[in-house]
Amino acid sequence: MNMTLPNILTVLRLLAAPALALMFLYFSRPAADWFALILFVMAAVTDWFDGYLARAWKQESKLGAMLDPIADKAMVVIALMVIVGYSSMSPWLVLPATFILFREVFVSGLREFLGDTAGTLKVTKLAKWKTTLQMIAIAVLFAQGVFEHYLGMAVLDMGPETFARVMEGQTQDVYGIWWKNAGMVWAGNLGLVLLWIAALLTLVTGWDYFRKALPFLRD
């Protein structure tokens, strides 16, 4: 195995995927949300960086080509599992997550079945945009969790009437409740919109891969 710097970054990104879930097992929230957000963003940055370095330094390898999509899928699947698991199980979140997970399993199964002919399912530009949108959406949803828990800590001993007065500007906002609530709402809505767009791209690219594989599936 050729352990160049791009390959090392890819391996680290692969190891970071299960570490996302471990953050929520060994740390309390919102610290776990912060650690998961930072870890996910760093891993997403290396996703672009390792590919760029491999091309710039002419260090592209079979190991990197094999591990790179696995690391991407592991990061997305585990991150979505964590976000859905700690959410209110809203169908607006569960549905796009389901579409994304189904597509990843389906395409992986297609590639495994095709074996040597799996080269027909090369990653397209649209698929790369899909992955980028997924990464951004998940990062924003992790940020939403950070806002949500800081808001929860700020209003822990506050009644609904006091909260309403603060939001209406009738009571001084000592704990920054307004901006924490605004951050939670905006991050949650933006994350869901981006996740739905990514899910639609996921279905489109999944259908494209299935169409390309059809000639090899006919007896």
Rank of each mutant, 00 (worst) to 15 (best):
M1T: 11
N7H: 10
N7M: 10
N7Y: 12
I8V: 04
L9F: 15
V11C: 06
L12F: 13
A19R: 13
L20H: 07
A21K: 13
L22H: 07
F24C: 05
F24I: 04
L25P: 03
F27I: 02
A32K: 11
F35H: 09
A36F: 09
L37I: 01
L37C: 05
I38R: 08
L39Y: 12
L39K: 11
F40W: 14
F40M: 11
V41F: 12
V41N: 11
M42N: 05
A43G: 02
T46S: 11
W48V: 00
F49Y: 14
F49M: 08
D50W: 11
D50V: 01
G51Q: 10
Y52T: 06
L53F: 04
A54N: 10
A56R: 15
K58Y: 09
K58E: 14
Q59T: 06
K62V: 14
G64S: 07
G64N: 03
M66R: 13
D68I: 12
A71K: 15
K73A: 13
M75H: 11
M75D: 06
V76G: 09
L80E: 01
V82F: 10
I83Q: 07
V84M: 04
G85V: 01
S87K: 10
S88C: 00
S90N: 14
L93C: 04
L95P: 00
A97C: 09
L101I: 15
R103G: 15
V105G: 15
V105F: 15
V107I: 14
S108D: 05
G115T: 10
T117I: 04
T117L: 03
G119K: 06
G119P: 13
T120W: 07
V123N: 06
K125I: 02
A127R: 03
K128N: 04
W129C: 09
L133K: 06
L133N: 06
L133T: 01
Q134M: 12
Q134V: 08
M135P: 12
A139Q: 14
V140N: 14
F142T: 02
A143P: 13
Y150E: 07
G152D: 05
G152Q: 10
M153A: 03
A154R: 04
V155P: 15
G159M: 00
A164I: 02
A164N: 02
V166K: 00
E168W: 00
Q170R: 08
Q170G: 06
Q172V: 15
D173P: 02
V174G: 01
I177C: 03
W179L: 04
A187F: 10
L192S: 06
L192P: 01
L195R: 08
W196K: 05
A199E: 01
L200A: 14
L201S: 08
L201E: 02
T202P: 13
V204N: 00
T205F: 07
T205R: 01
Y209M: 05
Y209H: 12
F210T: 04
F210M: 10
K212H: 07
K212I: 00
P215Y: 02
P215K: 00
F216Q: 12
L217W: 05
